[in-house]
């Protein structure tokens, strides 16, 4: 479980995060949603330690990340996996070498065991056939799957995904979402996903945190979204006609169920 308490972060005097409080449970896919510039990427970067907040606490199962020394942070980072918006695979390494990289760096296993583990992870994301290819030779969706395989290579307890569906077609996005969801429940990880893909919200949003101008505006699950009365959330999620129609149908269904 990851807890964020009263987190503040500003850039050149402008508050980007203004006292955010949130709890991200394990075994669930926790989504952070919000408009562009609302502070969700900054929040994730603060949680993983790429940015240092001015005030607040970040607790990884009770361990305060911000008060840790360098060595403790390094140890904790080995329990983290991250999938970046651009996949961030190493261009000069093959797919297999990319997945093996964290194992090469931190595992004391033999070479054979490391290869075996990397192949297992690639098999988990159905990419074993692409193991000898370079990142530039595979599609965007495949790159994201390789990034997932690399992120889970060291059996992390915490998985962070920064807009994992960006630049992907809807069908591939669903595959990625399902993969992340399955892995989260399978390994009982604490997964935090930064997204503004509404399909992800409706599909895998076990817990959703809506951020508006650096503060927590709404919190709930994917089922709560349809009955939410928060105007800003509704304006954000149901921005398109299609989604507004979906909500109306859902509301009618809910009313019928209640009447029955």
């Amino acid at each position: 479980m990851i807890q964020v308490k009263s987190l503040y972060k500003s850039f050149e005097g402008k508050d980007v995060l203004a006292g955010i409080n949130a709890t991200f449970d394990n075994g669930k896919t926790n989504l952070i949603i919000g408009q562009s510039g609302s502070g969700k990427t900054v929040l994730m970067k603060c949680i993983v330690g790429l940015l240092t907040p001015e005030k607040g606490e970040i607790l990884y199962d009770g361990r305060n990340f911000l008060s840790m020394n360098k060595k403790e942070k390094k140890t904790l980072r080995r329990e983290m996996g991250m999938i970046f918006q651009s996949a961030a695979l190493f261009d000069s390494l093959t797919v297999l070498e990319n997945v093996m990289f964290p194992l090469d760096m931190f595992s004391n296993d033999t070479y054979r065991d490391r290869v075996k583990r990397a192949r297992f992870c690639l098999d988990r994301v159905n990419l074993i056939e692409a193991q000898s290819k370079y990142p530039g030779e595979i599609s965007g969706g495949m790159q994201k799957r390789v990034a997932i395989a690399r992120a889970i290579a060291l059996n992390p307890q915490y998985l962070f995904c920064d807009e994992p569906n960006s630049g992907l077609d809807p069908k591939t996005s669903l595959v990625i979402d399902e993969l992340i969801h399955d892995i989260t429940t399978e390994y009982n990880m604490t997964t935090i996903i930064n997204t503004h893909d509404m399909n992800s919200v409706m599909g895998i949003g076990d817990s959703i945190l809506y951020i508006y101008k650096g503060h927590k505006e709404w919190e709930g699950t994917k089922n709560d979204v349809f009955t939410a009365t928060n105007e800003r959330l509704n304006n954000f999620i149901f921005a398109s006609d299609l989604l507004r129609k979906v909500r109306n149908v859902e509301e009618r269904e809910l009313k019928k169920t209640k009447q029955v």
């Binding site: 790429l50 190493f90 990289f101």
Partner: peptide
């Protein structure tokens, strides 16, 4: 890619 390295520790 550098951020990815940093996250890995």
């Amino acid at each position: 890619q550098i951020d990815a390295l940093e996250i890995m520790g």
